[in-house]
Amino acid sequence: MNAFRLAGDITHLISILVLLLKIYATKSCSGISLKTQELYAVVFLARYLDLFTDFISVYNSVMKVVFILSSVAIVWCMRRHRAVKRSYDKELDTFRHYYLVGACFVFALLVHEKFTFQEVFWAFSIYLEAVAIIPQLVLLQRSGNVDNLTGQYVFFLGAYRALYILNWIYRYFTEAKFSRWIACISGLVQTALYADFFYYYFLSWKNNAKLNLPA
């Protein structure tokens, strides 16, 4: 495993910790899209069907369990925890995420590595992850100003994607047989979605000002 990949996994983990910290410390999920969180839970459940069939490393298995449990816990908290539930910006979080699930599943039926149950669900999870951030970005755009922890959550998620791209470039040049076009192209699309957010994030960082997204 190269340094970019490790750094990518760690920033991914940090983003989840920042989100859990925000929910736990402030007992609030304002600014967080439940739809995006539900999509991530579906992404991890669909992708890690291989948890019991293909063993890669202890690191891999532990991370998979952490991602599944944390994403399910966040959804549970936002739906069931009394105080957290109250702070949910329901009227701002109106993106129709079921369409994304349907479209990604149809696309996975058409484009996959191999037509097997696991491979189709793996491709589906890759496509869905690429677009899962959209409801979150829409919510931030609508609410305009973004609190610190929410801004950092999205920043770390974006950093994770950017580091994965560096990881693929590194692997492309160092590994004899590197072919994972589904993951790479989806990853590029996913990272591109963050471009606008990153622009305003760096602007606010440079000016030492609160992060504001223009409507």
């Binding site: 990949r5 992708r47 291989d50 293909d54 890669i56 991370m63 590595e113 993951a183």
Partner: peptide, 10 residues
């Protein structure tokens, strides 16, 4: 046939 990529990434 084509070798299916091992999904060693998260």
């Amino acid at each position: 046939g084509r070798v299916v990529t091992e999904h060693d990434e998260l």
